[in-house]
Amino acid sequence: MIRVNLFLALLLMASAISLVTVRFQTRELFVASERMKAHAHELDAEWRRLQLERAELARNARIDSLARSDLHLVSVTPDRTIYLQQPAPAAQGAPQ
C-alpha cells in the first residue's frame, strides 16, 4: 500500500510541476503575442504615414515647384518652341 501511495504522490508532484510549467509557458506566449500585436499596430501606423508622405511627395504642384526652384525649369511657350518638319517620303516608283 505504501508503494502505491508513494507512486501516486510522485505522480501528483509531477502533474503539479507540469501544470506550473505549462502555465508559465502560456503566460510567456501570451506576452509575446501581445508584444507582436503592438509591433504590428506600430508597423501599420508607420505604413499609413509613409503612404501619406508618398502621396504628398508625388503631388504635381510640389513637383512643379521643385522643378522651378531647384532645377530652374520654365514652362514651355510657343515662342520658345522649335518645330521640326519631317521630309515627305519619296514616291515608291521614282528613282532615287
Rank of each mutant, 00 (worst) to 15 (best):
L50T: 03
H41M: 13
A58C: 04
Q51F: 05
F24A: 13
D64G: 01
Q92E: 14
P87V: 01
A61E: 14
R48F: 08
A67R: 00
R35M: 13
A45K: 15
V74H: 00
F30T: 12
A14T: 02
W47G: 10
D79S: 14
R80T: 08
H72A: 09
Q85S: 15
L10F: 12
R23C: 09
E46F: 07
R62P: 01
L57D: 03
P95G: 06
A61F: 02
G93M: 08
L84I: 08
A90R: 15
A32I: 05
L52A: 10
D64Q: 07
L73I: 01
M36G: 10
D79P: 01
Q25K: 10
A88T: 09
Q25A: 12
L19T: 11
L71F: 08
W47Y: 13
E53N: 06
Q85P: 05
L19N: 11
K37A: 15
A45H: 08
S69E: 05
I82W: 07
Y83A: 09
H72V: 06
H41W: 11
P87T: 01
V76H: 05
W47K: 15
A90E: 13
M36W: 09
T77S: 12
T77Q: 10
N60R: 10
A90C: 10
I63N: 02
A40L: 14
A55L: 06
R48L: 12
P95Q: 11
L43M: 07
E56N: 05
P89K: 08
S69K: 04
Q51Y: 03
A40M: 11
L71P: 01
D70W: 05
L11M: 08
S75L: 07
T81M: 05
Q25P: 02
R80P: 00
T77Y: 02
D64H: 04
R62C: 00
F24G: 10
P87F: 00
A55Y: 03
D79G: 03
V76Q: 08
R62S: 01
S65W: 00
M36F: 13
P87Q: 00
L10E: 11
Q92S: 11
R80C: 02
Y83V: 13
L57N: 06
A32L: 10
A40T: 14
R80A: 07
E34Q: 14
H39P: 02
A94E: 12
E53F: 02
P89G: 03
Q51K: 14
A61W: 01
R35I: 07
R62N: 02
L57P: 00
E42A: 14
A45M: 09
R62K: 05
L52E: 11
E46G: 04
R48D: 14
S65N: 02
A58I: 00
S65R: 00
E28F: 04
A45G: 05
A88N: 11
L11D: 07
W47T: 15
A88D: 10
Q85K: 15
R27W: 05
A55F: 03
H41V: 14
F30H: 15
H39Y: 13
R35C: 07
L11E: 07
S65P: 02
R59C: 00
A91L: 15
L84P: 04
A32R: 12
L52D: 13
D64R: 05
